[in-house]
Design a binder for these strands. Sequence first.
DNA 1: AAACTGACTTCTC
DNA 2: GGAGAAGCCAGTT
Length: 108
Amino acid sequence: MMNHMTFCDNVYQFIRKIPAGKVATYGQVAAGAGNAKAARAAGLCLKKNPDAPRTPCHRVVAADGKLTGYSAAGGLLAKKDLLLAEGVFFLRDNVDLARSQWSEHDAN
DNA sequence: AAACTGACTTCTC
DNA sequence: GGAGAAGCCAGTT
């Protein structure tokens, strides 16, 4: 039975469909979850309930491609390493959204 | 129910 | 481009 469908659940679902080698911004995730303005809330959901490997929260970055928070071990460092391993384009410490920002349409 | 918090985003200086 | 402030949202206390 359904516990209680929350915005977070939508967020997790959205993030789960992000393919490796691509990343989405919190705003994009929030939009996919139902509210483009809920980027903040979306991030909170990840922190509160990282849902382990089931939800690749490491594929979610800030609007600038900047790597923000990461509850898992290693923090942003591990996050960057993971994205690099997946083939995500990086510009120093930030993700190159111009190449690695994922879109539902998969216009790659 | 009200107030506080936070892994955001955008504007301005 | 970096620093500061305001706005918005859902969840938690």
